[in-house]
Simulated assay, not measured.
Amino acid sequence: MSGAKKHLRIGFIPLVDAAALIVAADGRFAADEGLDIELVREVSWSNIRDKLAIGLFDAAHMLAPMAIGSSLGLGQVKAPLVAPVNLAMNGNAITLSRALYEELFKEKGDPADPASSARALAAAIRAREAEGREPLTFAMTFPFSTHNYQLRYWMAAGGIDPDRDLRLVTLPPPFMVESMAQGQVDGFCVGAPWSSVAVDAGVGRILHFGCEIFARAPEKVLAMRRRDAEAAPDVAHALARAIAKAASHIETTKDQDEIAAMLARPDRVGVDAGIIRRTLVGKLKIDADGTMRENANYLVIGKAGALRPEAAQAVWLYAQMLRWAQADFSTVGVEEATRVFDADLFDAALGAPAAKASSDRDPGGAFDGARPVDDLRAYLAGFAIGCKT
């Protein structure tokens, strides 16, 4: 790109998985690509989706399944999108109120094992039902989100039907902690830093990292309207390059404090820099008593091929939509989903990858065993709970 910098308005939610976008905009990377990025902080994913669809945003930090849902017109106005780059893999956590945690594990059960914790939750649900008590309420950030799919997958593995056995509600990420503090929700799945904020506030305990449910879940993408990317591919290429360079900087710099401070600003993520730094290195405090848990794959921003959008990731996300009756199976649906994760656009910007794709790029990797999704009907038939499309 040459001449005056291209001005872009890009919406984002205050989450650490927006790190590459924020660092690209606030550091030198976007400017080096001829871009002048105005980041607009939003509260809800519906705002992000709608403002991108009608052109108030040029691009957006977006839930990966939401980009597919928008392109398919599922529960929203149909607005075909394209993701020239992945912003993050993983980064979520399932957090319980301290009261529910004590109820589940006061006598037995292994809180570190998702299969055991799901069974413990199922037992608690049955006990509440027998006693005539109110059902539990869990929150996730949006129906078309990995948060929703992680909660549902985990619960269903314990014999829980999330559409019948409890309440599953939608809340914007910044509202999760206060809702738990007020006793309105018993648990939630949300992206960093909000589970850590709940722990530091003494209202919640992290039960499972998202990567303990799905080893490698496509979490956020940089989304653009498809017609805009096709009309100005140089802009999409420049954005992808700027984000890729920022992601590389985040993954390789020895000064994580600098990155954490940049993200901690009130107009960015707006929480304590120490929480953000722990998130970036995958070392989180899971309880107010100081108990720590570490996983290098808690949040994957740029390593191991994470930036490249892959068709297999789109198919895996579409499979989750089918399982939970958010979509009806069709070959057109599969094709449209894979068009969103545009590896060709990424490759044009950054160069084609080696001919042999890394197995690390395979999506999913559920805690209860691998289930290939190359045959969607067979994949869905393997579950006792969920739609049998």
Rank of each mutant, 00 (worst) to 15 (best):
G3T: 05
H7C: 11
L8Q: 03
R9C: 11
I10A: 09
A20T: 10
E33G: 06
W45P: 03
L52N: 05
I54A: 01
L56I: 15
H61K: 15
M62W: 06
A67E: 01
A67F: 03
G69D: 00
I94S: 15
Y101A: 09
K106N: 13
G109N: 05
D110V: 13
S116H: 13
R119C: 02
A122W: 02
A124Q: 10
R133S: 04
P135M: 15
A139D: 11
F144I: 04
Q150L: 04
Y153I: 01
G159A: 02
D163V: 03
L171C: 14
P172K: 08
V177C: 08
Q184N: 08
V185K: 12
G191I: 13
S196I: 05
V199K: 00
F209K: 04
E212G: 00
V221K: 00
M224I: 13
M224Q: 05
R227Y: 07
S248A: 09
H249W: 09
I250A: 10
T253A: 04
G274K: 06
I275L: 13
I276Q: 10
T279W: 02
I301C: 10
G302K: 11
L307R: 14
V315A: 06
Q320V: 03
A325N: 14
Q326F: 07
D328E: 11
V334L: 06
R339P: 10
D344L: 03
A348P: 01
A352L: 03
R371D: 00
R377N: 11
L380Q: 01
